[in-house]
Write a protein that binds this DNA or RNA. Structure first.
Length: 478
RNA sequence: CGAGGUAUAGCGCAGUUUGGUAGCGCGCUUGGUUCGGGACCAAGAGGCCGUGAGUUCGAAUCUCGCUACCUCGACCA
């Protein structure tokens, strides 16, 4: 008993010190480690395996909607960045630059991409000539660098991995449709793969991407009540295509700028998984991105027949799900705790007693203490079913948590009260940036996004009290 | 980038006030006994005390510089 308490202390309390809990979980479960350069992180095999599963399943969805992958260079001439005025203003402060090659100064500084709009636009301007070249639907999996002041593993690192889609369309309507199509794709992915409910909506002018006409986001609620912007899609209109001279000859014989979108999600999604599902025992991974979906733990493995049976079961399940047999020389109890901390969804215990009864003892990570006996000849089917159940349960739990932490508010006192006690505030807003700034100043909460369902929850701006027609979420954000 | 704090074995810490050549717990290695919720015994390995200068017969300890990290603010996927 005393020992168990000691173990729990190894990870900070999720309720008492959430930031420390987060760091402890990242490091102790070996998702990532700090790199030697400020703000950089090493994604360790366990964390990278999650990223690969995210990549694979998201990439399938991009391909299914007609997108192709390509790769553009990491180094971008500085002059490209300056072609779109708002864009350079937004990114210049945090851009890393290469100015030397060996001992020689470069004739023009090179930007290490903070995002790839500029170089992709430059290339698109060479590739697009005719309406027949549209739409152009390209995605890139890449790393980007942004010199951030405050960094945290997965949530904000100087270098991070992401995907960025960049598309060109003949009409504004088609580009708008693409922008929303991907937003819905992101939401569906988060729901069905990550088991995280998202608030979808449009960003305010103040919060939108540098150079975009409209930005949309998916926002997830973390268990400390803060918001994590988990993916964004942007409608550019012709801002960039005009700045970069992307032109095509239309059917009517006129040269036109195509309409453009871009959209991205990053390794930040792993941070969302940690903070949306984790608990006092550590990680709790949604089955569809869990590198190990089920782990077999032999009990009393020195006794005759135990390891043999475990290997037999392992061979039967291998190839059907991501499974591991842990026959290391640690006690079963030690392993139970280890895999719970690492968030493995299902644990299969096989000991002499189980073998005698022709069953395995199966425990699920998402419900503490729930153990069932499953006949060995039906194990695979039952575990597969259980994984789906765990996914649904995790989603519903996250949804219930979120729904109980959204307060509809009508004035500043209520808003401050709501966000200070770990909630999102849903309120009416006049649309004025001044009010956004004032809310930020008084409560440290920012506007998250405006849901597509704009059914009013009042008629006055939560801040200035003037007539308001926009419904918007406020929350403290990562 | 502003304010505060920290830096000693893989991790967590003691030692610094009062200078005398480095210690504890966990982990790790080997052997043995164990194994149904973090087992036990025994024997081991492991440190230019963040870094550069200075004071001193002598520095983890005192002085100055630098760097990194943490917490809190302003900026951001």
């Amino acid at each position: 008993m005393a020992k168990e308490k000691e173990f729990v202390k190894e990870i900070a309390s999720i309720t008492e010190n959430f930031p420390q809990w987060y760091t402890d979980v990242v490091l102790k479960t070996e998702l990532a480690d700090y790199g030697p350069v400020k703000g950089t992180m090493v994604i360790r095999p366990y964390g990278y395996a999650i990223w690969e599963l995210i990549q694979r399943q998201m990439d399938e969805r991009f391909k299914a909607t007609g997108h192709e992958n390509a790769y553009f260079p990491m180094l971008i001439p500085y002059s490209y960045l300056t072609k779109e005025a708002e864009h350079v203003e937004g990114f210049a402060p945090e851009v890393a630059m290469v100015t030397k090659a060996g001992q020689n100064d470069l004739s023009e500084p090179l930007v290490i991409r903070p995002t790839s709009e500029t170089i992709i636009c430059e290339m698109y301007s060479r590739w697009v000539e005719s309406y027949r070249d549209l739409p152009l639907l390209i995605n890139q999996w890449a790393n980007v660098v942004r010199w951030e002041k405050t960094t945290r593993p997965f949530l904000r690192t100087s270098e991070f991995l992401w995907q960025e889609g960049h598309t060109l369309h003949a009409t504004a309507e088609e580009a708008q449709e693409e922008t929303l199509k991907i937003l819905y794709l992101y939401e569906e992915f988060a729901r069905n793969v990550l088991a995280i409910p998202m608030f979808m909506g449009r960003k305010s002018e103040k919060e939108k991407f540098a150079g975009a006409q409209a930005t949309y986001s998916i926002e997830a609620m973390m268990q400390d009540g803060k918001s994590l912007q988990s993916g964004t899609t942007h409608f550019f209109g012709t801002n960039f295509s005009a700045a970069f001279n992307i032109e095509y000859l239309d059917r009517d014989g006129k040269r036109k700028n195509p309409y453009q979108t871009s959209w991205g999600t990053s390794t930040r999604l792993i941070g969302a998984i940690i903070m949306a599902h984790g608990d006092s025992r550590g990680l709790c991974l949604p089955p569809r991105i869990a590198p190990i979906q089920a782990v077999i733990i032999p009990v009393a493995m020195h006794k005759a027949g135990v390891l043999e049976k475990c290997n037999e079961v392992y061979a039967a399940l291998k190839g059907k799900l991501r499974i591991k047999l842990d026959d290391r020389d640690y006690s079963p109890g030690w392993k139970f705790n280890e895999y719970e901390m690492k968030g493995v969804p299902v644990r299969i215990e096989i000991g002499p007693r189980d073998i005698e009864n022709g069953v395995a003892t199966v425990a699920r990570r998402d419900i503490e203490g729930a153990k069932i006996q499953v006949p060995l000849d039906d194990l695979c089917a039952q575990v597969e079913k259980l994984l789906d159940e765990i996914h649904d349960n995790m989603y519903n739990k996250a949804l219930a948590f979120r729904d109980s932490h959204v307060k509809t508010v009508g004035n500043m006192d209520e808003l401050k009260d709501a966000v200070d006690s770990g909630n999102f505030a849903l309120a009416m807003w006049c649309g004025d940036e001044e009010c956004e700034n004032k809310v930020k100043e008084l409560t440290n909460a920012s506007t998250r996004n405006m849901p597509f369902d704009q059914t009013p929850c009042g008629d006055k701006c939560v801040c200035c009290g003037k007539k308001a027609s926009k419904k918007i979420y406020f929350g403290k954000a990562y």
